[in-house]
Design a protein around this nucleic acid. Structure first.
Lengths: 208, 208
DNA sequence: CCATTTCTGTAGTGATGACTTCAAAAGTCT
DNA sequence: AGACTTTTGAAGTCATCACTACAGAAATGG
């Protein structure tokens, strides 16, 4: 069995974690091969042998990020508690000391050059998946009976996803943990009215 | 009087507008000199003669963006109407047909490489200024008496700024005008509870 | 007219981007 | 041991980056 040939001189998982941290902080385009290899402690040929190309390394980094740092919809008895937990978890995660502020999936590739289109689409899909997961939890609330049947779970998920996305920018801008937790709480204040069946929907525009 | 020497062969304002659109869509680093000059209809030496360098061109583009496309805190009789108007204006502005989705100031430089630190700091400052403007309007509401004296205007401004920032990402991700307007309305639903003086603040979920 | 000033296009500058070539090194297999 | 396989470091490839040198073009002042 075993591996033939000269054995790899570095731990692939450790190197990947380092790469992920660089991407998290500097984004896809902002992370140069020079910086990546320096952080990973290896030379370019080793990187390419182990990870194929920069884009593949980034995709693996995203997967690792989601596993190790990503938010999970909280395991809670009600939809309300799950969403509140998610928002508060985001506030905490985006302000971890000694880690880059904000969410890698939200911040790593906001602008699109032709050559990074694949990256952008991939991250957008990951965000869409996260929003959909949230929506599913809201649907579960309807099934469980803690949300009324008529509630617009798509609109609700869009709203809370918007707040979470915005928290990433705010974290990068220096809003601290207490500030983001206050935002999370503020976003929950309207919950009862928002989830009151068709009520909120009939008021068009809320502008007056 | 008059200008000596060969007159400029292009309209500086028109060229700047084109440059701004490129930066808006592709961000600072994503906009190459090649693409910029192509969009502006000029060659590199003309660009440098008129705008000094890429960073100066970008800063001027940001100023133009804020003048022509930026959100203003709505001119409304109450703080509530002003904020509601601001959110709805954001939903509309970020989904203008034939314009890049989302806000240039939020999206043009989320990640920071060493060489774009100045750009990032400049945009962060612009965002901070926008948030501060919103906070001032809330303070005005306290002065006018349509908000109670104890209201935490900093926290409120942070919350609505977060929603606006998040709307930019959502717009880039394809959430349409109706979706963003629904988000704007959802963000306003908790207004009465949020602005009920010290009420919301006494719940100290923010510290754990 | 000529001198002066400023702009414009062509063509290049050095630096840095992602990625490779290649021979030596370091293992396994028989 | 020696054939084989794979990794590693040093150096190099080619494209693209922001930016510029330079000479000719197009205006004004005398």
């Amino acid at each position: 069995m075993a591996e033939r040939g000269r054995p790899r001189g570095f731990d692939r998982q450790v190197a990947l974690r380092r790469a992920m941290e660089v991407f998290w902080e500097h984004g896809y385009e902002g992370a140069s091969l020079t910086e990546l290899t320096a952080a990973m402690g290896i030379n370019a040929p080793s990187l390419y042998a182990a990870f194929s190309c920069k884009e593949a390394l980034f995709r693996e980094s995203v997967r690792l990020y989601e596993q190790q740092e990503g938010l999970m919809v909280a395991d809670a008895p009600t939809a309300r508690a799950a969403v509140a937990g998610l928002l508060r978890a985001g506030a905490l995660a985006y302000t971890e000391p000694d880690k880059p502020a904000g969410c890698m999936v939200v911040l790593a590739a906001t602008t699109y050059t032709p050559k990074t289109e694949g990256i952008r689409d991939h991250l957008r899909e990951r965000r869409r998946a996260a929003s959909e997961q949230l929506r599913q939890r809201l649907e579960q609330g309807v099934t469980d009976g803690d949300l009324p049947p008529g509630v617009d779970t798509r609109a609700l998920a869009d709203y809370f996803t918007t707040v979470l996305n915005g928290m990433s920018t705010q974290a990068r801008d220096g809003v601290g943990r207490a500030g983001l937790l206050a935002v999370a709480d503020a976003a929950m204040v309207g919950w009862d009215l928002l989830t009151a069946g068709e009520a909120g929907r009939s008021e068009p525009s809320a502008s007056r």
